[in-house]
């Protein structure tokens, strides 16, 4: 058994990718409703009713702020999907990282449900972030190489 140090707090999350990649033009309330449904489905499998749903709804709400921060100078091409090739690997990683920081922090906060465990929340967030960004970028590269 290898001791991973603080990384042993980590889990990896792929499902937020779906909300990440929903089209630009989708109105925010619809995005959030989709996130809610998605979250409830995830919760069914994790047996944690509402936790993922609450997190995902919040993350969907925050997506606009993330995109505003990462908007290139020329702006986004709103009709195009999020494409690794077009936006570049660096942009993609930054997007995934920012998006997941919010998602993971909210998720672990709701999961333990108490600020008493702030250290554990931060450790889980950071270690999961590293895993999840890595996995998500790999996943996108493998599953959709032509983009």
């Amino acid at each position: 058994m290898i001791d991973l140090g603080f990384l042993s707090y980590g889990h990896f999350f792929i499902y937020p990718l779906w909300i990440m990649l929903l089209p630009f033009k989708l109105p925010r309330p619809i995005l959030m409703v989709l996130a809610f449904i998605m979250g409830l489905i995830v919760d069914m499998f994790y047996d944690s009713p509402g936790v993922h749903a609450a997190t995902l709804v919040f993350t969907a709400y925050a997506r606009e702020f993330v995109l505003r921060i990462l908007e290139p100078e020329i702006g986004f091409d709103l009709d195009q999907p999020f494409s690794l090739k077009r936006l570049g690997i660096v942009w993609y990683i930054a997007y995934a990282a920012l998006f997941l920081i919010i998602h993971l922090f909210v998720y672990f906060s709701i999961e333990v449900f108490s600020y008493v465990y702030f250290y554990e929340i931060m450790m889980s967030t950071i270690s999961s972030l590293i895993f999840s960004v890595f996995i998500i970028v790999i996943f996108v590269m493998i599953s959709n190489p032509k983009y």
Binding site: P29, V33, G39, P49, G50, A53, A54, F113
Partner: peptide, 16 residues
């Protein structure tokens, strides 16, 4: 969107 957020989060927290 804020109203939707609050509405959905209230449901979620109720469930949680």
């Amino acid at each position: 969107s804020t109203i939707t957020l609050l509405f959905l989060e209230v449901i979620c927290f109720y469930i949680i």
